[in-house]
Amino acid sequence: MKLRKVTAAAAAALVLSITATACGGDGDKDSNGSSGSGGGDKIKIGIKYDQPGLGLKEPDGSFSGFDVDVATYVAKELGYEPDQIEWVETKSADRENALSRGDVKFIAATYSITDERKEKVDFAGPYLLAHQDLLVKKDSDIKEGTDLNGKKLCSVTGSTSAQNVKDTIAPKAQLKQVGTYSECLAALQSGAVDALTTDDSILAGFAAQKQYQGQFKLAGLKLSNENYGIGVKKGDTETVNKINDALEKMVSDKSWDKAVQENFGPADYKNEPAPKIGNIVK
């Protein structure tokens, strides 16, 4: 009789276990490793790995940069501690696919909000207004875009930044295209080129590196407006709203200002004030 009671109890426990598994547990987790309501075991966030000051994987395996700081703050507001974040490298060409596949929950990776991209993904933010600019040596006589006529201008292969300058500002500039911005920076340091162009935030991040501090300056030309947003899978309005709330809090408690100063300050980056949520500057 006692054996029969134990067996019945075990059977009841098994039924309860099966029912709990069917109703929740791991089955509620998204493919990006987070639970649908936030606060799961892990959250996967897409960033760049190769942009100092924004998204950089350090030699010791840690991550640094403004995008990393913003994403960490947002994740905290969503219920995740830093040790629950899994950073995923998302290169520019694969950002939309990474979101649609569910590889990551959101992306903070110098991701400019454009009408074309908004057809494929949703955006929270913007959280930073950047501009296309020039990086030159501290003692450079280049002060305006037209001063680039006859000068050597560097950018990465496939980028439209340098071509924009040549087409609209300095038609006699000599373009030099290389594989990475690090190569451009080395060429600028050696004098092989006279200027480097891309977003001012990216330029400031490179110039803020210890080995380059005090050597370069931003021209401050504001050749374009780049509204950096946080990319979210199309249709995930709930996550967009939560991220927007987190960004507003980050600005109001001054964490945003602190992150800007820590990541761009050494390059004397004259940043724009924190943008208002939903305010896209054309």
Rank of each mutant, 00 (worst) to 15 (best):
Y228K: 01
V68K: 13
C154G: 00
S252L: 05
K137L: 09
A71D: 06
T160E: 14
C23G: 06
K42W: 12
D60V: 12
E272I: 04
Q174A: 02
E86N: 00
F206G: 02
G27R: 15
I45N: 10
A170T: 02
V88C: 08
V281H: 07
V6G: 03
S182K: 06
S252A: 08
E226F: 09
Q163A: 11
L203T: 13
A259N: 00
G265Y: 13
L134E: 03
S37C: 10
Q211W: 07
P126A: 02
A12S: 12
E119I: 01
L247M: 12
E86C: 01
G27A: 14
E262S: 11
K138W: 03
G38L: 06
N164M: 15
K276V: 00
E81F: 14
D67F: 11
D139V: 06
L153T: 04
P82D: 03
A130V: 08
A204K: 13
L247T: 07
A274H: 02
V136A: 00
A124Q: 02
P266D: 10
K137D: 00
K143V: 10
L175P: 03
D139G: 08
V260P: 03
K282F: 08
D268K: 14
A109V: 01
L148Q: 05
I243E: 04
G27M: 08
L129H: 10
K151Y: 07
I43Q: 05
D139C: 12
V74E: 06
K172R: 06
D268Y: 06
G65R: 03
G25C: 11
Y73V: 06
T72K: 10
A93W: 03
A267G: 02
Q261H: 03
N244A: 05
K137G: 09
S92H: 03
D139Q: 14
N225H: 12
K249E: 15
S112W: 09
A208D: 13
V136N: 00
T21N: 12
G191N: 03
S100K: 13
A246R: 12
G79N: 13
N225C: 04
K152D: 00
Y181M: 10
C154E: 04
T180F: 11
F66V: 07
S159F: 15
I243H: 12
D141A: 13
L196H: 01
I113E: 05
D199P: 12
A20W: 10
K44I: 04
K48E: 13
Q132A: 13
S182G: 11
T19D: 07
I277M: 08
S17K: 03
D83R: 08
S34A: 15
V178A: 08
I280Q: 02
Y73R: 06
A170W: 14
Y228W: 14
D41V: 15
V260L: 01
K166F: 11
L78E: 12
D115V: 10
I280L: 15
Y73W: 07
A246I: 07
A246N: 01
D194Q: 01
